[in-house]
């Protein structure tokens, strides 16, 4: 792991981001107050179950939410609130300063245009340069992400690429304008297990080549383990714990994080058996009062069901958690043991 870059400048800051979707069935509160900051060259992991609002919050940063979505809060890119920027300047940031890689490379590329064209287009969207020059840049990027015979590959259509190659092409597209921030939304989830590691590695390599910071979204703590400097855990549209990666892994102060850790195979915990958190996340339409995790939390009691805990500092070094009973987790040696059923042997 590289040195923690928190001393360097802050490029992205999200404050109290709220995203809601009015739907026929009611207001979906997809994101309910997310705040984080991202420093130059930093890797921030955002982890949470499906539906916890990871994608929605990053689409909000990109300004790519579907029409009808309501966004509140502040999103500061180098001090400018992008939500207040005029549309044209906002578009100027997109793809040039902040780029995004999507989850499913099979559908993220337009099937009717060549890969080269789609890459060159990303350059031409921001700089009026000759097409040849844009294509040359595209070729360079394909080389960088490790696609062999880049020259010919420029003329291929996406359907002639494998999933891994398409995701490489997406990475190339993201970094083609030397962005400051890359938001990678589960970049490996849709891929074969065998290529997942390669793609992650490539992503980090490319990030270093262009000196970008990364927001790495995943529902898999294992992915962020060796990579992220800091981790933000989300549950039901809210951040429930944030801190330096090691702290999150070894001293989780929120039962949900502990549960996630417990459901990972073979981290130095015992047992080796998956211990999933039972139950399902709450509906985002009619959120019950109190802690949204309380129906699934082994520590839950009356206060949890009545009062939603706020994110509070639990440790120095920027470790925050949203739990009334974080101190109970601090008291046990292995917090993941909380999720073990009684019949199982406790080590």
């Amino acid at each position: 792991m590289t040195n923690h870059p928190s001393e360097t400048g802050e490029i992205l800051r999200v404050e109290d981001l709220v995203v809601e979707f009015p739907t026929e069935d009611g207001l979906v509160q997809a994101v309910r107050g997310v705040s984080y900051s991202l420093h130059e060259r930093e890797v921030l992991g955002i982890v949470g179950e499906s539906g916890s609002g990871k994608s929605v919050s990053s689409l909000a940063v990109m300004g790519l939410l579907p029409r009808g979505a309501r966004v509140r809060g502040r999103i500061l890119y180098r001090g400018d609130d992008v939500l207040k920027l005029p549309a044209r300047r906002r578009r100027g940031l997109r793809g040039r300063k902040i780029a995004m890689i999507f989850q499913d490379p099979m559908t993220a590329l337009n099937p009717v245009h060549t890969v080269g064209d789609q890459l060159a287009e990303a350059v031409l969207a921001h700089d009026l340069v000759p097409r040849k020059q844009a294509l040359a840049r595209a070729r360079e990027m394909l080389d960088l992400v490790g696609i062999p015979q880049a020259e010919q590959r420029l003329r291929s259509y996406p359907h002639e690429f494998s999933g891994g190659m398409r995701q490489r092409a997406m990475i190339a597209m993201a970094v083609i304008n030397n962005p400051d921030v890359i938001i990678a939304d589960e970049p490996t989830t849709a891929l074969d297990v065998t290529v997942q590691a390669q793609i992650l590695e490539k992503l980090l390599e490319v990030k270093d080549a262009v000196n970008a910071a990364i927001v790495l979204i995943t529902h898999d703590l294992g992915v962020v383990a060796g990579i992220a400097h800091r981790v933000l855990v989300m549950y039901a549209g809210k951040p429930v714990e944030i801190g330096v990666t090691d702290t999150i892994f070894y001293r989780p102060r929120m039962p949900y994080t502990a549960g996630l850790l417990g459901s990972m195979p073979s981290l130095e915990t015992s047992g080796g058996r998956l211990r999933p958190i039972s139950g399902a996340p709450p509906s985002l339409i009619n959120l019950p009062s109190g802690c949204p995790f309380s129906p699934r939390c082994p520590l839950a009691e009356d206060r949890c069901r009545a009062e939603e805990p706020a994110l509070g500092e639990v440790d120095e070094g920027g470790h925050y958690a949203a739990c009334h009973h974080w101190d109970q987790l601090a008291a046990v040696a292995d917090p993941t043991a909380l999720f073990r059923t009684e019949s199982e042997p406790v080590t």
Partner: peptide
């Protein structure tokens, strides 16, 4: 490594 509660939840949803 996916959270398998997810699957359970999905099944319930179904």
């Amino acid at each position: 490594m996916a959270i398998s509660a997810q699957a359970a939840g999905a099944a319930q949803g179904m």
